[in-house]
Amino acid sequence: MAELTVSVAGLRDHKGNLLFCLTRRTAQYLDCDKDPGAVHGSVAASVGTLDFQHVAPGEWALLMIHDSNMNGKLDKRFGIPREGFGFSRNPAIKFGAPSADDVRFEIPAGESHQQIKMRYIF
């Protein structure tokens, strides 16, 4: 089995929660909540580090949202995120969400680390 530590960088503030979803369905990573094998949940934004234990080694994708108003979703205006978001491998953000290839990463057996840089458009 594997252990993954994820540190969160670039939080605008420590209000609200961080919503996260770690999925092996990398091609459909944006629909992570529909993956019964996904690891998802929320933690206080002030935590700054997430620890995933007993994860199966292999390819994964991680999506994170800074839910500053604690309503349990990513707020958008005209389709543009109004809250912070981040992806595994920190791909460049252009128009729309990054591709599955841009967020897919390998979790090896043992311990590994990933840093998620939060991004804000507004």
Rank of each mutant, 00 (worst) to 15 (best):
P108L: 05
L30N: 04
D102A: 15
C32L: 10
H113Q: 13
V39P: 00
F87G: 08
P36N: 10
G37C: 11
H113S: 15
L50C: 13
V39A: 08
V39W: 12
A44V: 03
I65L: 08
G72S: 02
Q114I: 07
A27H: 12
L11Y: 00
R104K: 14
R119Y: 09
G16P: 05
K73R: 13
R82K: 15
R119D: 02
A100V: 04
C32H: 15
Q114R: 12
A97L: 08
S42W: 05
T49Y: 07
A100C: 07
H113K: 15
H54T: 11
F52D: 00
G79M: 00
G41Y: 08
A109N: 03
T26F: 05
A38T: 14
K15E: 09
I65Y: 11
D67K: 04
A61E: 04
A38M: 03
R119C: 08
G48N: 11
A38F: 11
K76A: 01
G79S: 07
C32I: 09
D102P: 01
T26S: 06
H54N: 15
E59S: 10
S68C: 03
A45M: 01
K94Q: 07
R25A: 09
Q28C: 01
A92D: 10
D13T: 06
G84T: 06
V43A: 10
L22T: 09
F87S: 01
L50V: 00
K117G: 07
N90G: 04
S46V: 07
S42H: 03
